[in-house]
Design a protein around this nucleic acid. Sequence first.
DNA 1: GTCTATACCACGATAGAC
DNA 2: GTCTATCGTGGTATAGAC
Lengths: 204, 204
Amino acid sequence: MTKERILEAAERLFAENGFEGTSLRQITAAASTNLASVHYHFGTKDDLMLAVLNRRLTPINQKRLEMLDAIEVHPPPLSAILTAFYAPVVELIEGPGAEFLPLFGRILFEGGRSREFFFQLMQPVASRFLAALRSALPHLQEEELFWRMHFTAAILGFTMAGSHVLAWVSGGKCQLRGARDITERMVEFSAAGLRAPVHQRSSL
Amino acid sequence: MTKERILEAAERLFAENGFEGTSLRQITAAASTNLASVHYHFGTKDDLMLAVLNRRLTPINQKRLEMLDAIEVHPPPLSAILTAFYAPVVELIEGPGAEFLPLFGRILFEGGRSREFFFQLMQPVASRFLAALRSALPHLQEEELFWRMHFTAAILGFTMAGSHVLAWVSGGKCQLRGARDITERMVEFSAAGLRAPVHQRSSL
DNA sequence: GTCTATACCACGATAGAC
DNA sequence: GTCTATCGTGGTATAGAC
């Protein structure tokens, strides 16, 4: 299927060179098709980007909600909530979706329509997880919870999108092992951060 | 000074639209000069980007090392180390460097020469801070320390580069207050994460 | 040092044959 | 559905007057 090949090539090239940094000519060459086929199947370059994003993110978000619903302890333990949030993304590194990962963080910074669309796809996930976190951390004020949820997302985004950062920080000594290992490290760190005692704020 | 005006305009536009997404024509128009002056003062578009990066990052890193050296308690407390790492960046939000912040994270994801250059500028800072963290957290294995330093950097990068993420997570309810407030929240969260107990890893 | 003018090329998009 | 051919725009970079 031509459409599928275009999606595959676009995913890889957008991840490598960014949206503006990738031309439709590169994409169609990599997909062994012609320039016009992109417009036939997707409309514009923008729409192609949204299709690439949607193809990976929708199944991930479904899995996240399934994992959240599958937690049987009530109120759900913090580590289970975080695992449900992290694991479906981290698992991509072991499968065919690995090409997508650098895009994951990039979209948040590149702005444009893809960022809006990203947030739109994330909305049901965000509200469900915020509710779960609220029940696991009832003592946290709403604003504090937002900040800490933000930090929690940061850890995922940076780790997935920027493996080169880790490679550099560690001087190459630190490599990505299995998805389980990474998820555990992220859950450990962010669970502790979410549970950190809140000091009084010094300034307004 | 034409050179200064170009740097100013380039910083803002790169931050808004990315490197590939910004044209020299946009930059020279915003700087009220002509297309050729960029090549006269900086050489290529690439070199201009490096100049923009260097102008902000070098003073920040100097201040970081000064703050680290100024800690008088030994071994240095974790919160003081983290404050020295975070504060010089966060303080930009209150000054003229605020335009630069979105670039900060973007560079890590956009790749290219600017990322290499970024790491090069960060190298002395990274080794000094890793040493300080090692002395504050002597029980952590080297690999664990690298991961957690990575998460610590993630929190800074995401918060600085992606204020829209926080705005969205909170539905606009959560706004950026002063630099002190933000730094404290980041220090609290990451200090707890760095101190989290290490469980045995399940997989290799 | 700073400008105008322009060379030259790659871009996204489209029309129309097959 | 897929192709070739082409349009118009805007990209980086440069030559040469002032």
